[in-house]
Amino acid sequence: MFPANFEYVRSHSTDEAFAALQQHGSEARVLAGGQSLIPAMRYRLARPAVLVDINPIKELSYLHEKDGFLVIGATTRDAALEFDQNILARYSLITAVSRVVADPIVRHMGTVVGSICHNDPSGDWTATALASRATMIVRGKDGTREISIDDFLVDSFTTAIEEGEMAIEVRIPIPDAHTQGSYQKIERKVGDYATCAAAVQLSMNVDGTIRQAGVAITAVGHIAMRVTAAEAMLVGQRPSLELCKAAAAEAPKIASPNADQRGSAEYKKDMARVLVGRGLQESLLRLGVSL
């Protein structure tokens, strides 16, 4: 299949891209990795009039730590994270998710920021951003602004980015030595959208209680969701099997999946429970807590 034609704008700087987006308004879409957009265009389900290619913008391709955050630029590929030694050593949640997003080849083009902006209901990076309490940096008319991931993810394929704006960066707090995470995903095969997935990240106090908990589920609703009740239940508590089970049981309560070929709503809800439970246990195991 072949896309419908479009106008192409190659931008070499954020300013250029921003100007193009301002100029073309709702007709324009940002072209980052293109790994969701181009297939949709090939089926002619998406037919944007103008594509603003941000791939040539060198200033947006970065991955480093700064002021307590891992900062990932808008054109940084998924694969950059997958093969980064620092991430492998210290970011267990990111490491886990970076190996199961789409497939290994798609990860060489796909971008983390682009995936979060796409805000697919089955997104892996959106759930991960929720569990790790990320912040998005968006360039608007009045300069850049920071938006917490919870405020950024509005609805399926809808974010807090307004017409003519563009996302610049995602910031993820650097996990300390007492923080570990896990990404649990069920997919029918590599490259499929998740049937259900859960992102979990736990931080411990020195006294063995849980200091902070990030729990998010995806593919079981309009959008990736934070399991707030589970997080609240975990914080301040000493981990136990019962606690994990109780926290996991909160996931299906907020899940509202559609039945499709990946499974019934009932199945997906139960998988939200199972995967959150497994994510919690694996995170704890990485923290040296065996239940």
Binding site: Y43, L45, D120, P121, D260
Partner: peptide, 14 residues
């Protein structure tokens, strides 16, 4: 059609 087969995963809610 393709909107159902390719987009079906997200169609219901929309």
């Amino acid at each position: 059609g393709p909107i159902a087969t390719v987009g079906g995963r997200v169609l219901d809610a929309q």
